[in-house]
Protein backbone atom coordinates (compact mmCIF):
# COMPACT_ATOMS: atom_id res chain seq x y z
CA UNK A 1 0.00 0.00 0.00
CA UNK A 2 1.01 3.53 -0.42
CA UNK A 3 1.52 4.04 3.24
CA UNK A 4 3.91 1.12 3.41
CA UNK A 5 5.75 2.30 0.35
CA UNK A 6 6.18 5.76 1.75
CA UNK A 7 7.23 4.34 5.06
CA UNK A 8 9.87 2.16 3.52
CA UNK A 9 11.21 5.16 1.66
CA UNK A 10 11.39 7.05 4.92
CA UNK A 11 13.02 4.10 6.61
CA UNK A 12 15.59 3.82 3.88
CA UNK A 13 16.44 7.48 4.31
CA UNK A 14 16.59 6.95 8.05
CA UNK A 15 18.99 4.08 7.63
CA UNK A 16 21.25 6.14 5.44
CA UNK A 17 21.18 9.02 7.88
CA UNK A 18 21.73 6.91 10.94
CA UNK A 19 24.50 4.93 9.35
CA UNK A 20 26.55 8.13 9.34
CA UNK A 21 26.39 8.19 13.11
CA UNK A 22 27.02 4.59 13.92
CA UNK A 23 30.18 3.77 12.10
CA UNK A 24 31.37 0.25 12.82
CA UNK A 25 29.52 0.36 16.05
CA UNK A 26 27.40 -2.68 15.69
CA UNK A 27 29.51 -5.73 15.23
CA UNK A 28 26.64 -8.05 16.07
CA UNK A 29 24.60 -7.09 13.01
CA UNK A 30 23.49 -10.23 11.23
CA UNK A 31 25.09 -10.98 7.91
CA UNK A 32 21.92 -10.57 5.93
CA UNK A 33 23.31 -10.52 2.48
CA UNK A 34 25.77 -13.33 2.74
CA UNK A 35 24.94 -16.06 0.25
CA UNK A 36 21.42 -14.76 0.00
CA UNK A 37 20.80 -15.92 -3.54
CA UNK A 38 22.64 -19.22 -3.48
CA UNK A 39 20.54 -22.08 -4.71
CA UNK A 40 17.29 -20.15 -4.91
CA UNK A 41 17.39 -18.96 -8.49
CA UNK A 42 14.64 -21.34 -9.52
CA UNK A 43 12.40 -20.07 -6.74
CA UNK A 44 12.95 -16.39 -7.40
CA UNK A 45 12.33 -16.98 -11.11
CA UNK A 46 9.10 -18.78 -10.32
CA UNK A 47 7.94 -15.94 -8.14
CA UNK A 48 8.75 -13.34 -10.73
CA UNK A 49 6.80 -15.37 -13.25
CA UNK A 50 3.85 -15.43 -10.87
CA UNK A 51 4.02 -11.68 -10.32
CA UNK A 52 4.11 -11.02 -14.06
CA UNK A 53 1.07 -13.22 -14.64
CA UNK A 54 -0.78 -11.38 -11.92
CA UNK A 55 0.21 -8.06 -13.45
CA UNK A 56 -1.00 -9.18 -16.89
CA UNK A 57 -4.36 -10.05 -15.39
CA UNK A 58 -4.37 -6.83 -13.42
CA UNK A 59 -3.97 -4.78 -16.58
CA UNK A 60 -6.71 -6.75 -18.37
CA UNK A 61 -9.18 -6.44 -15.52
CA UNK A 62 -8.34 -2.80 -14.96
CA UNK A 63 -9.05 -2.22 -18.63
CA UNK A 64 -12.51 -3.77 -18.19
CA UNK A 65 -13.07 -1.68 -15.11
CA UNK A 66 -12.01 1.52 -16.83
CA UNK A 67 -14.25 0.76 -19.80
CA UNK A 68 -17.23 0.26 -17.50
CA UNK A 69 -16.53 3.53 -15.71
CA UNK A 70 -16.23 5.41 -18.97
CA UNK A 71 -19.39 3.83 -20.35
CA UNK A 72 -21.29 4.87 -17.26
CA UNK A 73 -21.97 1.24 -16.29
CA UNK A 74 -22.15 1.76 -12.55
CA UNK A 75 -23.12 -1.76 -11.47
CA UNK A 76 -20.66 -3.38 -13.84
CA UNK A 77 -17.87 -1.19 -12.47
CA UNK A 78 -18.82 -2.08 -8.92
CA UNK A 79 -18.71 -5.77 -9.77
CA UNK A 80 -15.30 -5.64 -11.40
CA UNK A 81 -13.73 -3.35 -8.79
CA UNK A 82 -12.90 -5.87 -6.01
CA UNK A 83 -11.96 -8.63 -8.48
CA UNK A 84 -9.52 -6.50 -10.46
CA UNK A 85 -7.88 -5.34 -7.27
CA UNK A 86 -7.16 -8.90 -6.15
CA UNK A 87 -4.45 -9.29 -8.81
CA UNK A 88 -2.75 -6.24 -7.40
CA UNK A 89 -3.12 -7.38 -3.80
CA UNK A 90 -1.75 -10.87 -4.54
CA UNK A 91 1.48 -9.51 -5.94
CA UNK A 92 1.79 -6.62 -3.54
CA UNK A 93 5.37 -7.28 -2.41
CA UNK A 94 6.38 -6.51 -5.99
CA UNK A 95 3.60 -4.15 -7.02
CA UNK A 96 4.43 -1.79 -4.20
CA UNK A 97 8.14 -1.62 -5.00
CA UNK A 98 7.57 1.56 -6.96
CA UNK A 99 7.12 4.42 -4.53
CA UNK A 100 5.59 6.75 -7.12
CA UNK A 101 3.28 4.35 -8.93
CA UNK A 102 1.81 2.53 -5.97
CA UNK A 103 0.17 5.63 -4.46
CA UNK A 104 -1.17 6.72 -7.85
CA UNK A 105 -2.94 3.40 -8.20
CA UNK A 106 -3.80 2.43 -4.65
CA UNK A 107 -3.74 5.43 -2.28
CA UNK A 108 -6.60 6.04 0.11
CA UNK A 109 -7.63 9.63 0.75
CA UNK A 110 -6.21 9.35 4.27
CA UNK A 111 -2.79 8.43 2.82
CA UNK A 112 -2.85 11.54 0.63
CA UNK A 113 -3.86 13.73 3.56
CA UNK A 114 -1.17 12.20 5.76
CA UNK A 115 1.27 13.53 3.21
CA UNK A 116 -0.13 17.02 3.64
CA UNK A 117 -1.66 16.86 0.17
CA UNK A 118 -5.21 17.67 -0.83
CA UNK A 119 -7.97 15.73 -2.53
CA UNK A 120 -6.90 17.09 -5.91
CA UNK A 121 -3.76 14.93 -5.66
CA UNK A 122 -5.82 11.81 -5.15
CA UNK A 123 -6.14 9.33 -8.00
CA UNK A 124 -6.49 5.63 -8.66
CA UNK A 125 -8.79 2.85 -7.56
CA UNK A 126 -9.91 4.25 -4.25
CA UNK A 127 -10.86 7.60 -5.73
CA UNK A 128 -13.14 5.83 -8.20
CA UNK A 129 -14.37 3.64 -5.33
CA UNK A 130 -15.54 6.86 -3.68
CA UNK A 131 -17.41 7.86 -6.83
CA UNK A 132 -19.05 4.49 -7.26
CA UNK A 133 -20.18 3.88 -3.71
CA UNK A 134 -20.52 7.32 -2.11
CA UNK A 135 -21.59 9.50 -5.03
CA UNK A 136 -23.14 6.52 -6.75
CA UNK A 137 -21.91 7.63 -10.15
CA UNK A 138 -19.18 7.17 -12.72
CA UNK A 139 -19.66 10.67 -14.02
CA UNK A 140 -16.67 12.91 -13.69
CA UNK A 141 -14.32 9.95 -13.13
CA UNK A 142 -13.46 9.31 -16.79
CA UNK A 143 -10.08 11.06 -16.66
CA UNK A 144 -9.14 9.35 -13.43
CA UNK A 145 -10.03 6.05 -15.08
CA UNK A 146 -7.85 6.78 -18.11
CA UNK A 147 -4.94 7.66 -15.85
CA UNK A 148 -5.47 4.50 -13.81
CA UNK A 149 -5.14 2.31 -16.89
CA UNK A 150 -1.99 4.13 -17.96
CA UNK A 151 -0.53 3.66 -14.49
CA UNK A 152 -1.47 -0.02 -14.41
CA UNK A 153 0.28 -0.58 -17.73
CA UNK A 154 3.33 1.29 -16.57
CA UNK A 155 3.40 -0.84 -13.44
CA UNK A 156 3.25 -4.00 -15.54
CA UNK A 157 6.19 -2.79 -17.62
CA UNK A 158 8.26 -1.86 -14.63
CA UNK A 159 7.68 -5.13 -12.77
CA UNK A 160 9.72 -6.67 -15.59
CA UNK A 161 12.74 -4.83 -14.18
CA UNK A 162 12.35 -5.89 -10.56
CA UNK A 163 15.12 -8.03 -9.19
CA UNK A 164 13.39 -10.69 -7.13
CA UNK A 165 15.53 -11.83 -4.20
CA UNK A 166 14.78 -14.51 -1.61
CA UNK A 167 14.66 -11.71 0.93
CA UNK A 168 11.94 -9.94 -1.04
CA UNK A 169 9.91 -13.13 -1.04
CA UNK A 170 10.40 -13.98 2.63
CA UNK A 171 9.82 -10.45 3.84
CA UNK A 172 7.03 -9.99 1.31
CA UNK A 173 5.02 -12.96 2.55
CA UNK A 174 5.05 -11.66 6.11
CA UNK A 175 4.30 -8.13 4.87
CA UNK A 176 1.22 -9.44 3.09
CA UNK A 177 -0.07 -10.78 6.38
CA UNK A 178 0.86 -7.57 8.16
CA UNK A 179 -1.24 -5.72 5.58
CA UNK A 180 -4.16 -7.92 6.50
CA UNK A 181 -3.60 -7.41 10.23
CA UNK A 182 -3.29 -3.65 10.12
CA UNK A 183 -5.75 -2.51 7.47
CA UNK A 184 -7.96 -5.26 6.05
CA UNK A 185 -9.05 -6.67 9.38
CA UNK A 186 -10.07 -3.19 10.50
CA UNK A 187 -11.99 -2.34 7.33
CA UNK A 188 -9.72 0.62 6.66
CA UNK A 189 -8.70 -0.45 3.17
CA UNK A 190 -12.07 -0.30 1.43
CA UNK A 191 -13.92 2.28 3.48
CA UNK A 192 -16.56 2.99 0.79
CA UNK A 193 -17.10 -0.37 -0.91
CA UNK A 194 -16.42 -2.52 2.17
CA UNK A 195 -14.91 -5.18 -0.07
CA UNK A 196 -12.03 -5.70 2.35
CA UNK A 197 -12.46 -9.48 2.40
CA UNK A 198 -11.46 -9.68 -1.28
CA UNK A 199 -8.17 -7.94 -0.51
CA UNK A 200 -7.83 -10.12 2.57
CA UNK A 201 -8.17 -13.28 0.49
CA UNK A 202 -5.80 -12.00 -2.17
CA UNK A 203 -3.12 -11.10 0.39
CA UNK A 204 -3.36 -14.59 1.89
CA UNK A 205 -3.13 -16.15 -1.57
CA UNK A 206 -0.08 -14.02 -2.30
CA UNK A 207 1.62 -15.24 0.87
CA UNK A 208 0.57 -18.82 0.21
CA UNK A 209 2.09 -18.68 -3.28
CA UNK A 210 5.44 -17.71 -1.82
CA UNK A 211 5.17 -20.54 0.67
CA UNK A 212 4.31 -23.00 -2.12
CA UNK A 213 7.36 -21.93 -4.10
CA UNK A 214 9.71 -22.19 -1.12
CA UNK A 215 8.11 -25.30 0.35
CA UNK A 216 10.71 -27.85 -0.70
CA UNK A 217 13.53 -25.71 0.52
CA UNK A 218 11.79 -25.22 3.86
CA UNK A 219 11.06 -28.94 4.14
CA UNK A 220 14.77 -29.67 3.76
CA UNK A 221 15.41 -27.58 6.89
CA UNK A 222 12.31 -28.17 8.95
CA UNK A 223 9.56 -30.52 7.81
CA UNK A 224 7.40 -29.63 10.82
CA UNK A 225 7.31 -26.02 9.75
CA UNK A 226 5.89 -27.05 6.38
CA UNK A 227 3.18 -29.09 8.09
CA UNK A 228 2.34 -26.27 10.44
CA UNK A 229 2.12 -23.74 7.63
CA UNK A 230 0.05 -26.06 5.45
CA UNK A 231 -2.40 -26.53 8.31
CA UNK A 232 -2.54 -22.84 9.16
CA UNK A 233 -3.08 -21.78 5.55
CA UNK A 234 -5.93 -24.22 5.20
CA UNK A 235 -7.45 -23.05 8.52
CA UNK A 236 -7.52 -19.45 7.40
CA UNK A 237 -8.86 -20.36 3.98
CA UNK A 238 -11.63 -22.39 5.60
CA UNK A 239 -12.44 -19.50 7.87
CA UNK A 240 -12.60 -17.08 4.95
CA UNK A 241 -14.82 -19.49 3.03
CA UNK A 242 -17.46 -18.93 5.70
CA UNK A 243 -17.85 -15.39 4.40
CA UNK A 244 -18.31 -16.17 0.71
CA UNK A 245 -21.44 -14.62 -0.72
CA UNK A 246 -22.36 -17.54 -2.97
CA UNK A 247 -21.59 -15.60 -6.15
CA UNK A 248 -17.85 -16.09 -6.18
CA UNK A 249 -17.31 -13.09 -3.95
CA UNK A 250 -17.34 -12.11 -0.28
CA UNK A 251 -19.86 -10.46 1.99
CA UNK A 252 -19.43 -6.85 3.00
CA UNK A 253 -17.04 -5.99 5.80
CA UNK A 254 -19.98 -4.30 7.52
CA UNK A 255 -21.68 -7.65 7.98
CA UNK A 256 -18.82 -8.99 10.09
CA UNK A 257 -19.36 -9.07 13.83
CA UNK A 258 -16.70 -8.28 16.38
CA UNK A 259 -16.36 -12.03 16.98
CA UNK A 260 -15.83 -12.61 13.23
CA UNK A 261 -13.05 -10.05 12.92
CA UNK A 262 -11.44 -11.32 16.10
CA UNK A 263 -11.42 -14.90 14.83
CA UNK A 264 -9.99 -13.78 11.47
CA UNK A 265 -7.37 -11.66 13.17
CA UNK A 266 -6.28 -14.49 15.45
CA UNK A 267 -6.03 -16.85 12.48
CA UNK A 268 -3.80 -14.35 10.67
CA UNK A 269 -1.55 -14.02 13.71
CA UNK A 270 -1.37 -17.77 14.17
CA UNK A 271 -0.28 -18.08 10.55
CA UNK A 272 2.12 -15.16 10.72
CA UNK A 273 4.24 -16.47 13.57
CA UNK A 274 5.40 -19.68 11.81
CA UNK A 275 5.44 -17.89 8.45
CA UNK A 276 8.09 -15.57 9.83
CA UNK A 277 10.32 -18.65 10.28
CA UNK A 278 10.60 -19.27 6.52
CA UNK A 279 13.89 -17.36 6.68
CA UNK A 280 15.57 -20.53 8.00
CA UNK A 281 16.16 -21.47 4.36
CA UNK A 282 18.82 -18.77 4.31
CA UNK A 283 20.91 -20.55 6.92
Amino acid sequence: MKKTAMLSTLLAVGIILSSCNTIENDTSAPQENADSSIGLQEETDAYKQFALEQMDQFVMETEKFVTAVKNGELEEAKTIYPLARMYFERSEPIAESFGDLDPRIDARLADIQDEGLGEENWSGYHKIEYGLWVENTTEGYEDIADQLLKDAKELRARVETVEVTPDLMITGSVDLLNEVSTSKITGEEEIYSHTDLYDFKANIEGAEKIFEILKDKIAAKDADLVNELTTNFSSINELLAKYEDGNGGYISYLELTKEDTKALSEAVNHLGEPLSQMGIIME
Binding site: Q31, S36, P166, S276, G279, M282, E283
Partner: peptide, 9 residues
Protein backbone atom coordinates in the same frame (compact mmCIF):
# COMPACT_ATOMS: atom_id res chain seq x y z
CA UNK B 1 19.60 -17.64 21.91
CA UNK B 2 20.38 -15.11 19.25
CA UNK B 3 20.93 -16.42 15.75
CA UNK B 4 23.12 -14.92 13.05
CA UNK B 5 20.29 -15.46 10.53
CA UNK B 6 18.85 -12.01 9.88
CA UNK B 7 16.05 -13.43 7.75
CA UNK B 8 14.06 -14.70 10.69
CA UNK B 9 12.72 -12.81 13.72
Amino acid sequence: DSSPNGFVP
